[in-house]
Write a protein that binds this DNA or RNA. Structure first.
Lengths: 152, 152
DNA sequence: TTCAGTGCAAAAACTTTGCAGGAGG
DNA sequence: CCTCCTGCAAAGTTTTTGCACTGAA
């Protein structure tokens, strides 16, 4: 599970330089906490976790940096219909989509190669240059203690 | 563009009875405004529009009713990654997905029959009972004045 | 030296909740 | 007549903004 943080730092550094953003220690601190986070997280959750771990990076910086990390694809930006942005590490992972249980909130991942073909085909037909997609399936899972959990 | 409101009222009334919710004039007022709204709208936008049209239905009732209307499928609930819930009329329309321009916010619709097959297939494989999906493609549109618009 | 980035707190945007009164069944 | 629904306002959640200061280039 431990990823190579140095490599990720390098990717981020290159991106920042290229886009003429400054390279600051706070930004790498956010990157580290984000890549260490298991599963999906919201910006505020990450901020609070950092606070609790004696980091004194501000909320504004966390929000700002997560956007940058999504822009350079180290993180993936998600939205599971809860009106909050979720992120997850995209570093060294293959792209995937999600199934969400409407009872207990459980999230499963899946990969379906056809989806990229559909994206390309539809975008072309309607004159779009595709940059990404979001495909969520909502339903009820068969987990034994589904309905007992409240969230997550 | 004018839909048959009476038919929609009947669908809603049946749903309310069946689910043991009360049939109130406020709920039908929300339904009427929702079906008349062109395109996608947020709950608060609908509330404000109703206010401006001399309706005195409260914010709480609007939010509550839109949930009911989505539950009985008179409306479709959407999320285009802006951290707010959007609705659109689903009455007498065939289901569709969306392409969203990341520059100007333009939204185009598309229908792709394969998608339902993928939903069924993936859900089955992972032990889910599917209840719906959300498929958004993000990209840049070829509209002449794209980038000039700020939103919508 | 310069100005983008930072921390902090306040504001904004959207949604939910608490409460007292009113009307649907 | 019993509560569910309503309006209103307050509070909650997540995200954005304004401002003065700091440190990267």
């Amino acid at each position: 599970m431990s990823v190579n943080l140095n490599e990720a730092h390098e990717v981020f550094r290159k991106y920042l330089k290229q886009e003429k953003h400054r390279v600051t220690p706070e930004r790498f601190e956010v990157l580290d906490f984000a890549l260490k986070y298991e599963g999906h997280f919201g910006a505020d959750e990450l901020y609070l976790r950092m606070k609790n771990n004696k980091s004194n990076v501000s909320r504004a910086t966390v929000y700002n940096t997560l956007e940058l990390l999504a822009a350079c694809e180290l993180l993936a930006k998600r939205n599971f219909g809860e009106n909050k942005t979720r992120y997850e590490s995209n570093y060294g992972r293959k792209s995937h989509d999600h199934l969400i249980c409407i009872n207990c909130g459980a999230i499963k991942e899946f990969t379906e190669p056809e989806i990229e073909e559909i994206v390309a085909q539809v975008a072309k037909k309607l004159g779009f240059k595709p940059q990404g997609h979001s495909f969520n399936i909502f339903g009820k899972c068969n987990n034994a203690n589904c309905k007992h959990k409240d969230n997550e």
